[in-house]
Amino acid sequence: MRKITAGLFISLDGVVENPQDWHFPYFNDEMGQAVDAQMSSADTLLLGRRTYDSFASAWPDREKAGAEDAAFAKKLGDARKIVVSTRELEFTWRNSEQLQGDLIEAVTALKAEPSTADIAMSGSVSLVRRLLAAGLLDELHLLVHPIAVGEGMRLFEDADAPLPLKLISSVTFATGVVHLVYRLDDGAPTGDYAKAKASLPQTAD
């Protein structure tokens, strides 16, 4: 079964919208390596239309320019790119196609393909939410920036129910960014205050 990983830039107050407006001051070699590791472990990218349009308008030109980010741009160009949209799309970026049929059924079929490489996601917040809710997202890579943005769409806003997650790894960068990797937690703890109060400091009468 193929693994789906999703990478997101996120502020301390949970904002994931328009990271280009606030995250670049925190981008360093450590973050670059983390992003590259998540994306390079995949041979397929699963993207929402808006994220795809943003990528397609930038990365092909960066690959042609041959600057320091050209190698990463080529990786994205060479990868199979599957775009989720409710409208018919036309593509000019190589190796791009539209996801066909029901989202959950189609992504389940993608995960069952005979490949050992991951399926990577970047951004595509609404798609990340839907796959988390369906139990199809295997790893959530959050690059938590030490800044409160105040305005913008948040990753977990308007959730229908609690979403228990298990922390797999945590790395703090020199910039103060924390790279957190989570997966869904089927064995999340349960309890109430009656259970919790047993862990409170006890004082003698």
Rank of each mutant, 00 (worst) to 15 (best):
T203W: 10
A79N: 07
E113C: 06
V144H: 02
S170P: 01
Q20S: 15
W22G: 12
L140P: 04
A109F: 02
S126K: 02
T86M: 03
P162D: 08
E17D: 15
A161N: 05
A42W: 09
S96A: 15
K75Q: 13
L8H: 02
R129E: 00
D158K: 14
A6H: 07
T190I: 07
L143N: 12
F55C: 02
E90M: 12
A188H: 15
S124E: 02
S124P: 05
W93D: 14
E157N: 03
D29G: 04
A194S: 13
S41M: 06
T92E: 14
P114L: 11
L132D: 07
E97M: 03
L132P: 03
S11C: 04
T175D: 08
L110T: 07
G7D: 05
F9Y: 09
L89E: 15
V171K: 10
A112T: 05
G77P: 04
K111S: 10
Q33L: 09
K3M: 11
S199N: 11
E30S: 15
L132Q: 10
T175C: 08
V16A: 03
S169V: 01
T203E: 12
E30M: 09
S11D: 02
K64C: 01
V125G: 00
T51L: 07
H141S: 13
T190G: 15
R154I: 06
G14K: 06
R62H: 06
S40P: 07
T116C: 06
K111V: 04
S41I: 04
D192E: 14
S115L: 14
P201Y: 07
R80V: 03
K3R: 14
I104N: 07
G14F: 05
L110W: 06
S169Y: 01
K195Q: 12
M1V: 03
Q202N: 09
L12Q: 11
V181P: 01
W22L: 10
N18M: 11
M31V: 11
P162N: 05
H23N: 12
S40C: 08
L89W: 04
T92L: 06
L184I: 15
Q20T: 11
T203R: 15
G135V: 09
D36T: 14
R49E: 14
L200H: 10
K3V: 13
D185P: 05
V83Y: 02
E151T: 12
P60K: 01
E157C: 02
A196F: 11
